[in-house]
Computed example of a mutant assay.
Amino acid sequence: MPRYEYRCRSCGDTFELSRPMAESSAPAACPVGHHDTVKLLSTVAVGGSASASAPAPSPGGAGGCCGGGCCG
Rank of each mutant, 00 (worst) to 15 (best):
M1I: 11
P2T: 10
R3W: 07
R3I: 15
R3T: 15
Y4M: 04
E5D: 01
R7Q: 15
R7W: 00
R7M: 14
C8V: 04
C8Y: 03
C8D: 03
C8A: 04
C8N: 02
R9F: 09
R9D: 08
R9C: 06
S10Q: 13
C11H: 00
G12M: 03
G12Y: 01
F15S: 05
F15Y: 13
F15A: 04
F15Q: 05
E16S: 15
S18D: 15
S18Q: 12
R19W: 03
P20A: 15
P20Y: 13
M21G: 04
M21Y: 09
M21N: 06
E23Y: 04
E23W: 06
E23M: 13
S24R: 13
S24V: 13
S24K: 10
S25Y: 08
S25T: 14
A26L: 15
P27C: 12
P27W: 06
P27I: 11
A28Y: 00
A28I: 02
A29D: 07
A29Q: 08
C30H: 05
C30I: 10
C30V: 09
P31L: 07
P31I: 11
V32E: 11
G33R: 04
G33F: 10
H34M: 04
H35N: 04
H35V: 12
H35D: 09
D36S: 10
D36A: 14
D36C: 01
V38Q: 12
K39H: 12
K39D: 01
K39L: 14
L40T: 01
L40Q: 09
L40R: 08
L40D: 00
L41Y: 03
L41Q: 12
S42G: 02
S42Y: 00
S42H: 02
T43G: 07
V44T: 05
A45G: 01
A45V: 12
A45R: 07
A45S: 09
A45F: 03
A45T: 07
V46M: 09
V46G: 00
G47S: 02
G47F: 04
G47Q: 03
G47K: 02
G47V: 03
G47C: 06
G48F: 07
G48W: 04
S49P: 00
S49L: 10
A50N: 05
A50C: 02
A50E: 09
S51I: 06
A52K: 06
A52C: 03
A52F: 08
A52L: 11
S53R: 14
S53K: 14
S53E: 13
S53D: 08
A54D: 10
P55D: 14
A56F: 09
A56K: 11
P57N: 14
P57R: 15
S58A: 15
P59K: 10
P59W: 07
G60M: 05
G60T: 08
G60H: 05
G60A: 07
G61N: 04
G61A: 09
G61T: 08
A62W: 08
A62Y: 09
A62C: 03
G63A: 10
G64L: 11
G64K: 10
G64S: 12
C65P: 00
C65G: 03
C65W: 13
C66F: 15
C66L: 14
G67Y: 01
G67H: 01
G68I: 08
G68P: 03
G68N: 10
G69P: 02
G69L: 11
C70A: 09
C70W: 07
C70R: 07
C70P: 00
C71Y: 08
G72Y: 09
G72E: 12
